[in-house]
Nucleic acid binder design. Structure first.
Length: 420
RNA sequence: GGAGAGGUGGCCGAGCGGUCGAAGGCGGCUCCCUGCUAAGGAGUUGAGCGGUUUACCCCGCUCCGAGGGUUCGAAUCCCUCCCUCUCCGCCA
């Protein structure tokens, strides 16, 4: 959520910056400002009436003590009239406030000035590459063929149990999945300084509001209707919201969290994309990294976060590249995002395996995560960052493809041997 | 699921329907005392919104789990819901 004060004071700046994502936001800003104006007018009026009412009520109390009954009765009449006016205005206010919030909650974050301007993923900028894609002396197979031949990836039974985009894994695949989770968590906790966390994967709507998935992206989420809970699409949701509504002590920052969780995404609107294999599933495992930091060093923290995620690929010896997303490809809550893309031999290209973002105070404002500044005593919104470290299913698929052998099998990266 | 108890500020905890944004304690901050540390003394210390302002200050409104209701007036009374704790039942 953007700061309404910023929008009020500098609407043109906000419009200009948001236009780098999509021109349509300019209209939303105008709408928002109109509603905000209306809202503030009503608030002033209501508050004036309430102030008068409070004064009269106190007066009545005093008169009762003094035994001046009749006089008090006269005042009561007056307050009743005010109450009727207040009631009417508050009804209006409630409606206007709802409209106000609805618009504000659907406006995305402002891209950081360093983010390249562009329309879509074609305008993303490659930052660096690591590793050399392997030269095969045979035609590399896609992971689903390798997996099916070995009988360790079972798409038919996945579909039988749950429908399309669900997979069953047997033996080595299942064990590799588990090994990767442990490996990633070990690196992040023992070498990168993150605190391991285990969280619920069913969360309340207001939690998803906090990180920005709701209200705009409801169709991407699985909902448990009976309980008004949602399955998380990423552990970013549960980790970031750990401190929702809290005022942290300055010395508590920064906080580094990592968690393994399954993630659930309906993938609405991606019909026909990546239908084969396990690249795009409704349920997948991910080890997530979340940082809660002070505003002044959040961009340094972002660089470090990306390196922490990259380290996993380096240890697994999987070639990858890092790209900086352009304004048009940025996610809703992000101010700046680096994607890490792993080399996929069967597609002869890099595919996303991690997305690392600084949301600045966008999520913090929604989730009300602040810290008390020691010097000034002021409560300041923190900056929140998140990144995959990494998507486990995609890592598994990358290993199967990059480490495949001519005989149809595949090797296990050295660092994973002790985990298998 | 059943029975009971309870949800108050960063934390603990008190609170007759008006004088309560809320006693007291802890913690935090400032100052004093002290060779240093420890201890002690004094003061100060909630959040959000709106107005005003460069900012500070100031003024107003709201907030005592959530939402309704009674009342001129609710932390205090009534209703509904949520959560926590204790006991019982069930269960991975």
């Amino acid at each position: 959520m953007l700061d309404i004060k910023l929008i009020r004071q500098n609407p043109d700046y906000v419009k200009e910056r948001l236009a780098t994502r999509d021109k349509a936001y300019s209209i939303m800003i105008d709408e928002l400002l109109a509603v905000d104006n209306e809202r503030r007018n009503i608030i002033s009026e209501v508050e004036k009436l309430k102030s008068e009412k409070n004064k009269l009520s106190k007066e009545i109390g005093k008169l009762f003590k003094e035994g001046k009954r009749e006089e008090a009765e006269k005042y009561k009449e007056e307050v009743n009239i005010k109450n009727k006016k207040i009631e009417k205005l508050e009804k209006e206010l409630k409606e206007v406030e709802a409209r106000f919030k609805d618009i504000l909650l659907r406006i995305p974050n402002i891209p950081h000035p360093s983010v390249p301007i562009g329309e879509d993923e074609n305008d993303n900028v490659e930052i660096r590459k690591w590793g050399e894609p392997r030269k095969f002396d045979f035609e590399p197979l896609p992971h689903w063929e390798i997996g099916e031949k070995l009988g360790i990836l079972d798409f038919e039974r996945g579909a039988k149990l749950s429908g399309s985009r669900f997979t069953v894994m047997f033996r080595e695949a299942a064990r590799l999945e588990r090994a990767l989770i442990n490996f990633m968590l070990d690196i992040h906790t023992k070498e990168n300084g993150y605190t391991e966390v285990w969280t619920p994967v069913l969360v309340k709507p207001e939690i998803l509001m906090g990180t920005g998935q709701l209200p705009k992206f409801e169709e991407d989420l699985y909902k448990v209707c009976e309980e008004d809970l949602y399955l998380i699409p990423t552990a970013e949701v549960s980790l970031t919201n750990l401190h929702a509504g809290e005022i942290l002590k300055e010395e508590e920052l920064p906080k580094y969290y990592t968690a393994y969780t399954p993630c659930f995404r309906r993938e609405a609107g991606s019909h026909g994309k990546d239908v084969r294999g396990i690249l795009r599933q409704h349920q997948f495992d991910k080890v997530e990294l979340v940082k809660i930091v002070k505003p002044e060093n959040s961009y340094e923290e972002l660089e470090k976060l990306v390196r922490d995620a990259e380290k996993i690929l380096q240890l697994l010896e999987l070639p990858y590249r890092v790209v900086e997303l352009c304004t048009g490809d940025l996610g809703f809550s992000a101010s700046k995002t680096y994607d890490i893309e792993v080399w996929i031999p069967s597609q002869n290209r890099y595919r996303e395996i991690s997305s690392c973002s600084n949301t600045e105070d966008f999520q913090a404002r929604r989730a009300k995560i602040r810290y008390k500044d020691k010097q000034t005593g002021k409560n300041i919104l923190v900056h929140t960052l998140n990144g995959s470290g990494l998507a486990v299913g995609r890592t598994l698929l990358a290993i199967m493809e990059n480490y495949q052998r001519k005989d149809g099998g595949f090797d296990i990266p050295k660092v994973l041997e002790k985990y298998m």
